[in-house]
Design a protein around this nucleic acid. Structure first.
Length: 252
DNA sequence: GCGACAG
DNA sequence: ATCTTGTCGC
């Protein structure tokens, strides 16, 4: 038979029909996002302790090239680091980020030999106009546990003041009229990780992407925060993407 | 027309 | 995201 176990478990696209297609027009992209949101699972089920192998993905750009990097950590230790250079085909449009960066992120994830228990993305998950941000889109594409970690709030609103949050504190983010979801639906949380070296006060906006609930998503992010504001997997992926981008800049 | 907008 | 020096603060 051979090693079918590996073939069975590595990061693989399970729903190819949701591959971010740059040829679609805006209306078609938005419609696909609604379909993705219907497939998404935000019902929890696993405890934070069950996610021991966590990956972070992030992109860097140079001209029409996108550099995506994925870094996998196991109990705080880096166990794998990969990257992929692809062509950027779509401009940045708020609400359609997955069509610009999703394919690049997927390319990097497909190069992983390890199978992470969860993937952290640099962007929103459920905190999105159609509840299908980058983390939701790619999470559903791979049917993987996915979390969105954004530095800014795309939509929805924090139910309490977020200025002056202390480290570790979180404030629920609810849907408002800009979101295609019942009012008061919990989309995610504003979470205060470590402050910047300059004592900044802006929190991270964490939202579930796929296969976990908002509470588990924040707890998972909290468990991977080290000495910086960003959770370690994302911070290291960002760092690696920048390194690879420099190489791309060299031979150009 | 005005305002808002992940990376 | 990206382009960038000096500089405020612990």
């Amino acid at each position: 038979m051979g090693d079918y176990t590996h073939e069975d478990q590595y990061m693989k696209i399970r729903r190819p029909w949701f591959r971010p297609d740059p040829e679609l027009d805006r209306g078609e992209m938005e419609e696909m996002q609604r379909e993705i949101a219907e497939e998404a699972d935000w019902s929890g089920g696993l405890e934070v302790e069950e996610f021991s192998v966590v990956a972070g993905v992030d992109q860097a750009f140079h001209g029409d090239k996108a550099v995506s990097a994925a870094v996998v950590l196991r109990d705080g230790e880096v166990v794998e680091r990969v990257d992929a250079v692809t062509e950027v085909e779509v401009p940045y449009v708020p609400g359609l980020l997955a069509y610009r960066e999703g394919a690049a992120a997927a390319a990097a994830l497909q190069r992983l030999e390890l199978t992470p228990d969860a993937v952290l993305f640099d962007g929103s998950g459920r905190i999105h106009y159609r509840q299908a941000g980058l983390a939701t889109h790619v999470g559903v594409l791979f049917d993987a546990h996915a979390v969105g970690v954004a530095k800014n709030l795309l939509c929805g609103y924090p139910v309490d003041e977020v200025d002056g949050l202390q480290e570790g504190e979180r404030v629920r983010v609810e849907a408002d009229g800009d979101v295609e979801a019942p009012a008061e639906t919990t989309l995610g949380y504003a979470f205060q990780g470590k402050q910047d070296s300059s004592g900044r006060i802006n929190p991270l906006y964490v939202s579930p992407g796929h296969r976990l609930d908002a509470e588990t998503a924040v707890s998972l992010v909290e468990s991977t925060v080290s000495a910086y504001k960003l959770p370690e997997p994302v911070r290291l992926a960002d760092e690696h993407a920048d390194d690879v981008k420099e190489e791309v800049v060299r031979d150009s």
